[in-house]
């Protein structure tokens, strides 16, 4: 295998150049928006409108954007209402995404384990149909749900509360968690649990001591994906929250002043909002891949 790869590489040098060229191009396409966001947060109005791109050559970097949200070096020590606002939104986002994801992983894993191990009959529906029923929830466009949720949340006094947001986000990511976890549990051989039963476990202790540790990479992956989805959610956050429970994406979108869009402050906010995701992407990516590529049991 290794020698084959080496000879292939040597004899197909031009192929390699093309492949790497394409990969570099693709990386550029993917990374450019992030670069643009970060660089724009250091631009002033003229630089934004004239499309200057390269710092110190096209334009002189400036803390304007970061100053407007109270996060520049000279404002960080002072009190700033903008920063307080940002931190509050950031906290809302963190709490809503982490809680919803944790809840979804707990509920979703239980449901997935059931679907993977037991046979259910729910009217005419069997396990396969129930799984699809869960996933089918994603087909419904959120707009359709907007009015019902607004009315429902008003009645339940859940409007503009974190709890309301957490419940909604849990509901939103649950199908994906169930789907991922069911695949995970399906890859764990039944014999492992049976061996545990023979070894002295009850059904529950077999689940907790044998199945759960093996499915852990998948659960971590499902959790991270859920966090990302919740973190980026805009539509329901904009619809159902206002002063108290508003999240970061809503705040980013609201950076439009009377003279137009404040690109610099929006870029600074966006940069602050996407940084956690970039960190997750860089450090936890391999866990996501490991968790999602089944066959961890061998």
């Amino acid at each position: 295998m290794a020698t084959q790869a080496r000879t292939l590489g040597a004899s197909h040098y031009p192929t390699r150049i093309i492949i790497y060229g394409l990969l570099i191009l693709w990386a550029f396409i993917c990374l450019f928006p992030i670069y643009w966001t970060f660089s724009t947060s250091f631009k002033n109005a003229v630089n934004v409108t004239q499309g200057h791109l390269i710092p110190w050559m096209d334009f002189v970097p400036d803390w304007k954007g970061w100053r407007s949200v109270g996060l520049s070096p000279d404002t960080i020590g002072q009190t700033s209402t903008a920063r307080e606002e940002f931190l509050k939104r950031f906290e809302n986002s963190v709490i809503a995404s982490l809680s919803a994801s944790a809840l979804a992983v707990i509920i979703g894993s239980s449901a997935a384990y059931g679907l993977s191990r037991f046979s259910y009959r729910f009217g005419p529906m069997r396990n396969k149909d129930i799984s699809f029923f869960f996933l089918a929830q994603l087909i419904l466009p959120p707009v359709v749900l907007a009015m019902p949720f607004l009315v429902l949340y008003k009645e339940l006094a859940l409007l503009d509360t974190r709890i309301g947001l957490i419940l909604l986000y849990t509901l939103m990511v649950l199908p994906i968690v169930i789907w991922i976890m069911r695949d995970q549990f399906d890859t764990i051989p039944l014999e492992l649990e049976q061996a545990a039963l023979v070894d002295g476990c009850s059904v529950w202790s077999a689940f907790l001591r044998i199945v759960l540790p093996i499915a852990l990479p998948g659960m971590v992956a499902a959790f991270i994906l859920s966090v990302i989805l919740c973190w980026n959610e805009y539509f329901f956050a904009a619809l159902l929250t206002s002063t108290n429970a508003k999240t970061l994406p809503v705040m980013v979108a609201s950076q439009t002043g009377s003279q137009g869009i404040n690109w610099w402050s929006m870029a600074a906010l966006s940069a602050a909002a996407i940084t956690p995701l970039i960190v997750i992407g860089i450090f936890l990516e391999r866990y996501i891949v490991k968790g999602l590529t089944a066959g961890s049991v061998k």
């Binding site: 051989p189 014999e191 039963l197 023979v198 070894d199 002295g200 009850s202 540790p213 961890s296 061998k298």
Partner: peptide
């Protein structure tokens, strides 16, 4: 229940716990 029958079983695909080392696999019961 299987756990109360005092039997030990060897499975066709061995069913070793992948997250435990050999000593822990053997000592689990």
């Amino acid at each position: 229940e299987p756990k109360d029958r005092d039997i030990a079983m060897v499975f066709q695909n061995y069913a070793l716990y992948p997250h435990k080392n050999v000593a822990d696999n053997m000592g689990f019961a």
